[in-house]
């Protein structure tokens, strides 16, 4: 009897099965969701049923993922939710995170005033998305994130999509941050900012201000010229002005990123930052 009932192919069952299949197909494009345990899958499903993406679709994640074609931004956000579920975050925390991501990705409000130092540009100057990072030469997290971002915009997936600028924000608690900051301002003036910056981060554990001119020479910079610029009071003024600008823009820690002049408030893991930058680029391309 039961067998016969199933064989009659109730249209409602067919619709439900199709919806599930389409949803699963969409999720197949979100690798972080595949890696979840059965318990995490359950938690994810509850979040998908309750939360709405902030862009790309007006319904819940569950309904948006069942639509065809699925909006790329919805897929990105769904993957991000799965990553957060995997990290053990609850619905409320994920919802809060989603709001922060929205604030970071959607250019809302007036952009901050940032004086761009063209000597610190990395990537294609024509790339549509502008990323500015306020960083300290002695910040251990900057040392991890900044070389990754630099690689992404110069030769990685963000090449031609995003351009990166560096702004100095030397932290007082970091010994040698002022000397490093002055040397970097000088390197920017001499046209060799990034090779020098990357070398300083590469040698983070053996950092010593006295060695900075020698490291500059290793990257092809004129050691005497760099030392001259470091001693120039204008270099210090420039460094102070950069820090003051950061304070005006509510920078309280390093690294702090600004995407198209808007403060990035979301997760600081490099893969998440890169994901948000892709989202901004895609939104920008779609708007054209």
């Amino acid at each position: 009897m039961k067998w016969n009932a199933t064989r009659r192919s109730d249209p409602a069952v067919l619709v439900a099965v199709t919806a599930i299949c389409v949803g699963e197909l969409a999720l197949a494009q979100t690798p972080p969701c595949d890696a979840l345990t059965p318990e995490q899958q359950q938690a994810k499903q509850a979040v998908f049923a309750a939360l709405h993406p902030y862009d790309g679709c007006d319904a819940t994640f569950e309904q948006c993922l069942a639509k065809k074609p699925v909006s790329p931004v919805v897929l990105r956000l769904a993957s991000d939710i799965c990553r957060q579920v995997k990290a053990g975050r609850g619905k409320q925390e994920i919802e809060h995170g989603l709001a922060k991501r929205a604030q970071s990705a959607l250019a809302m409000g007036k952009p901050s005033a940032i004086a761009i130092d063209s000597g610190t540009l990395a990537g294609d100057p024509q790339a549509p998305v502008q990323v500015v990072v306020y960083a300290c030469v002695r910040c251990p997290y900057c040392r991890v994130v900044i070389p990754i971002l630099h690689r992404e915009v110069t030769e990685g997936s963000l090449k031609g999509k995003a351009r990166l600028y560096f702004r100095q924000f030397p932290l007082k608690d970091h010994q040698g941050s002022t000397e490093g900051g002055l040397a970097l301002v000088a390197a920017s003036r001499l046209g060799g900012f990034w090779p020098y910056m990357l070398k300083i981060y590469e040698r983070y554990d053996v950092y010593c201000p006295k060695l900075l001119p020698d490291w500059a020479a290793e990257t092809g910079l004129d050691k005497a010229a760099l030392e001259g610029l470091v001693a120039d009071p204008k270099t210090r003024e420039f460094l102070v002005a950069s820090k003051q600008e950061g304070i005006r823009n509510k920078v309280t820690a390093t690294p702090t990123l600004f995407i198209d002049g808007h403060k990035y408030l979301y997760d600081m893991q490099s893969e998440v930052i890169i994901d948000v930058l892709h989202e901004v680029y895609e939104a920008r391309s779609a708007a054209k």
Binding site: E39, C136, C139, P140, Y141, C142, V144, L171, K172, D173, H174, T252, A253, T254, P255, T256, M268, Q269
Partner: peptide, 23 residues
Amino acid sequence: RGDGIPLVQKEEYQILVPCPETM
């Protein structure tokens, strides 16, 4: 228990966080 602590950590711990200015 369902969410037992793994005896061998397979993923790297994310111990780095942005550095704040002490204010």
